[in-house]
Amino acid sequence: MILFDAVHKRYPGGREALVDVSFELARGEMSFLTGHSGAGKSTILKLVALLERPSRGRVVVNGTDVSTVRRRGVPAFRRQVGMVFQDHKLLSDRPVFDNVALPLAISGTPRRDLDKRVRAALDQVGLLGREQGFPQELSAGEQQRVGIARAIIARPPVLIADEPTGNLDPDLAMEVMSLFRRLNEVGVTVLVATHDIHLIDRLGTRRIHIEGGRMADGSDDGAS
């Protein structure tokens, strides 16, 4: 579902963000991406979402080699990848309903179908009944869950999350991670970047460890 084959990423200015990174996530698999800040975790997620392109090597997501995706094809490509961000990236001037419905609205789902699906997505993250609230009225954990509801509402085959628990206390963090686990159990391929080692230890999921832009030796305990 996600394949990295000898991927290098060099940013303008010469910084080597990724060096020879190779791993594969099968359909329906879940993995954590660990490493220090600046190790290259975010770069890997950006390559999966086509927010960046690899300098060398091959990135394949859901059967599509990103090098074959032209500029015009990027939006359609991104629609198969649900994204969760540390800072939520919610639209503060729109109610929860509109935020969650956004991926459906842009893909042309008829208005009359939105209501049911927004409520279903909010139900999954435990926020049913909060549709009319605005993001600022919610706690950090609730905002993060609205972000997750938005990421999953269009039922993308791939879900990626960048430090989704970075601003949350341990209990909320555990709750959010469990939510990812549940989504994974119903078939979504999940890749979560985090530096919260303690949390991962408790979950016991596969992890890919990045150090200085390289795969750390023997880090990929779920070798595929």
């Binding site: 359609a76 956004l102 991926p103």
Partner: peptide, 8 residues
């Protein structure tokens, strides 16, 4: 944000 979630 719209571009992030795949708005054309």
């Amino acid at each position: 944000v719209v571009k992030l979630v795949g708005g054309s």
